[in-house]
Simulated scan of single mutants.
Amino acid sequence: MLEVSHLNVFHGESQAIRDVSFRVGNCESVAIMGRNGMGKTTLLKSLIGMLPSRSGSIRVESQELAGSPSHQRVLKGLAFVPQGRMIFSQLSVEENILVGLRHPQRTVPEYIYRFFPVLAEMKSRRGGNLSGGQQQMLAIARALVTDPKVLILDEPTEGIQPSIIKDIARVLNLLRVERQIAIVVSEQVLSFALDLADRFLVIDRGRIVHDEARAQLDQEKVKSFLTI
Score class of each variant (00 low, 15 high):
residue 1 M to F: 05
residue 3 E to I: 06
residue 6 H to I: 07
residue 11 H to Y: 15
residue 11 H to V: 05
residue 15 Q to N: 12
residue 15 Q to Y: 01
residue 16 A to I: 01
residue 18 R to S: 00
residue 19 D to F: 15
residue 28 E to K: 08
residue 29 S to R: 08
residue 32 I to Q: 04
residue 32 I to G: 15
residue 33 M to E: 10
residue 33 M to K: 15
residue 35 R to M: 11
residue 36 N to K: 10
residue 36 N to R: 13
residue 37 G to L: 07
residue 50 M to T: 09
residue 53 S to F: 07
residue 54 R to A: 11
residue 58 I to L: 06
residue 64 E to T: 04
residue 65 L to E: 11
residue 67 G to I: 09
residue 69 P to S: 10
residue 69 P to N: 03
residue 71 H to R: 08
residue 74 V to H: 02
residue 75 L to E: 14
residue 77 G to Y: 08
residue 79 A to Q: 02
residue 79 A to I: 01
residue 80 F to R: 05
residue 81 V to A: 08
residue 84 G to Q: 15
residue 85 R to W: 00
residue 87 I to T: 10
residue 88 F to L: 10
residue 88 F to W: 03
residue 89 S to R: 11
residue 94 E to T: 01
residue 99 V to N: 09
residue 100 G to P: 03
residue 101 L to D: 12
residue 103 H to D: 02
residue 103 H to P: 00
residue 111 Y to C: 04
residue 111 Y to D: 05
residue 115 F to H: 14
residue 117 P to N: 08
residue 119 L to Q: 07
residue 120 A to V: 00
residue 120 A to G: 03
residue 123 K to N: 11
residue 124 S to L: 06
residue 124 S to T: 10
residue 128 G to S: 08
residue 130 L to V: 10
residue 131 S to C: 13
residue 133 G to I: 15
residue 135 Q to I: 03
residue 141 A to N: 05
residue 146 T to K: 03
residue 147 D to I: 00
residue 150 V to Q: 10
residue 150 V to H: 11
residue 153 L to N: 10
residue 159 G to N: 11
residue 165 I to M: 12
residue 169 A to V: 14
residue 171 V to R: 03
residue 172 L to S: 04
residue 177 V to K: 07
residue 178 E to Y: 04
residue 178 E to C: 01
residue 178 E to P: 01
residue 179 R to I: 00
residue 184 V to P: 01
residue 187 E to Y: 05
residue 188 Q to Y: 09
residue 191 S to W: 13
residue 191 S to D: 15
residue 192 F to T: 13
residue 193 A to N: 13
residue 199 R to K: 13
residue 200 F to H: 13
residue 201 L to R: 07
residue 205 R to T: 04
residue 210 H to T: 09
residue 211 D to G: 00
residue 211 D to C: 03
residue 220 E to R: 14
residue 221 K to Q: 11
residue 221 K to P: 06
